[in-house]
Amino acid sequence: MDQNELRKSVRNFIQENFIFDKDYSFQDDSSFLDEGIIDSTGILELVAFLEENFHIKVEDEELIPDNLDSVNNIIHYLQKKVSKISVLV
């Protein structure tokens, strides 16, 4: 999966599961928490999605906004993770 597909997959997950307002469009650098896109349970849903779809384990110390609080942060995090475990292309 290249970066564009990765981005598309993450955006699609966010769009389908957390954006119920069709007039709202979020940017890749929009903060999920500051903009109220995701609530506390939403973070757990997001982690489950990442673990299931990208065959990774999100470690406790990785559960921080720097890794998970925007599409860009997630992509960056996944790429770092991939380079470590060589699951993603």
């Binding site: 928490l33 500051d34 506390s40 349970t41 757990l44 906004p65």
Partner: peptide
């Protein structure tokens, strides 16, 4: 019940 069992650094908690 906030459901942040793994938020060891409490960073999400602070952000909320």
């Amino acid at each position: 019940y906030l459901n942040l069992p793994r938020d060891k650094g409490n960073i999400f908690l602070k952000k909320f």
